[in-house]
Amino acid sequence: MDVVVEPGLEHQAERARSRQGLLMGLPAMIYLFVFFVIPLGFVVMYSFATRTRTGRTELAGWNLEAYERLGETVVRAVAFRSLWIAAVTTILSLALAYPLAYFISTRRPATRNMLLVGVMIPFWSNFLIRTYAWRVLLDSDGIFTRIMSGAGLGDGRILFTNKAVIIGLVYGYLPFMVLPLYAAIERIDWSLVEGARDLYASGWSAFRRVVWPLSKPGVIAGSILVFVPSFGAYVTPAILGGNKKGLMGSYIVDQFMDARNGPLGSSLSVLVLVVMLMGTLVYFRQGGRSL
């Protein structure tokens, strides 16, 4: 016997369900609207607002001055220095993480889980403290400096330089690189590699022609996850860096704390946001899902 489905009833039930879903999401939606979307709107508004003589920001006299200032030599130097540091951090992280991710994903499941936990623990440990640990390590009479000078590897005093900042950033964000790389390499169908080897590909060319292309989504995801926070980093340069106002994150903070230039600070924040959004778009275009 056929079940007669009343289209009207079915439709109504569907609408009731959809309403229920909306209702469940509503509290979070309202919250994020008030405490995320509106604040974001304020920052965008600030970037077009006027700065009064006293350093207050007035939501009137809309202008593009704060964006024009992004072209100034000082600001450009800060932006390029940050881009450079973020790029070096990303490349170093990739160089460190790729072999590790490859190693982890080619272990037996039990070993693999243990090795992954080993990456996860620093990943979720307090970021501030982990950065501070490098301050202790790199201290002028700390272990690193003494090992370097003891081994005759030149002056190991790199604290308060960009080198120290890069070490700190690589240290802080390395797990962001390892985990997506691991996810990508672990998924590879190794019979393809076996096929390449059967066709007399050398180990190296099998890697270059098969493994590397297949792991590319992981490379891209990891690079974005490292690059974006490195570009806007504030804590790491503040603890390990020298010129405290020379990088994007600190420069933005300074606009609000000391320089009292809300519009410029806001246009810089919008710039960081644009870099982030571009990165995210590439990430999702590459088929990336969640973190």
Partner: peptide
């Protein structure tokens, strides 16, 4: 990024 979120909250 943290800094952007922080600026948002401060301004808001």
């Amino acid at each position: 990024p943290d800094v952007t979120m922080a600026v948002m909250m401060l301004v808001f």
